[in-house]
Amino acid sequence: MTLLDVRDLKTHFFTRDGVAKAVDGVTFSLERGEILGIVGESGSGKSVTGFSILGLVDPPGKVVSGQIIFDGTDLVAAGEKTIKGLRGKRIAMIFQDPMMTLNPVLRIDTQMVETVLAHEKVSRAEALARARETLTMVGISAPDERLRSYPHQFSGGMRQRVAIAIALLHKPDLIIADEPTTALDVTIQAQILAEVQRLCAQSNTALIWITHDLAVVSGLADRLAVMYAGRIVEEGRTADIIGQPLHPYTRGLIGSVPQGKPHGAMLTQINGMAPSLLNLPEGCRFRPRCPRADEACLVDPPLSEPIRGRGVRCVHPHLETRDEVLAS
């Protein structure tokens, strides 16, 4: 059953220098309990996609068109009041930097209890009990003592666990995680990943994991969406995309990951730089950097489905077999 259906979402930033099309026609959907990885480099619009779903795009940004259908309701049309009721309750978000997401001058219990009370009319004691329970769930020992602490008394990993606990307080249907492990060291990263995966599976919570790190998300997500310059250029099941990337950009991304390569082998790199969102190239946005580009790419390619269940926005997708890809 479809939980979230994003159709042709466009979020633009109206700056003094012009209109930055941060998200420009993004379409994807998500089933209950499914984990979707959105991969892309900085400025590809992946975070803005996440914030758009929650209606938290800061001015001068604005969702200009499209639909975000969450459990049957179009959040773009429904307006602020409806979204506010869902935020933190049915859709929760985890941010990138755990050092910054918790308010430094408020105790953990305050920050957790207020989240409970924002959506449910329960007593403070009940809210506190729920907070304690959730902290235990995310693997924080001595929750009573921890509740009375301030964020600065926690390590980065612990803070991210607290942030995850806050996201889980209302057992949401969907969690949007915006690079939540980027600021953590590798061992903690692995712990948090496993923890989130376990908790989501337990409560059948859908997860959108936004990241620039293909290695992290490939072990976690059921499906992947690769974003480039405000658009999804390729989507499909994780194994398929990693095994046989169709879009030249995805291929470049996978080629630049050190994992699984022989020691000492050269990493491939994608030439050039991501385009400015204020001044996008004509036709396919990856064209200036693409080794396969020709005149046909001057026409904006639509999202096509050359293989069943795979979407790709490219005129010349890599339709060679997996072996050929690995050999090349």
Partner: peptide
């Protein structure tokens, strides 16, 4: 971020 996070909590 903590302000944005507070909003994301639905406050």
């Amino acid at each position: 971020d903590y302000v944005k996070f507070a909003r994301a909590k639905g406050l």
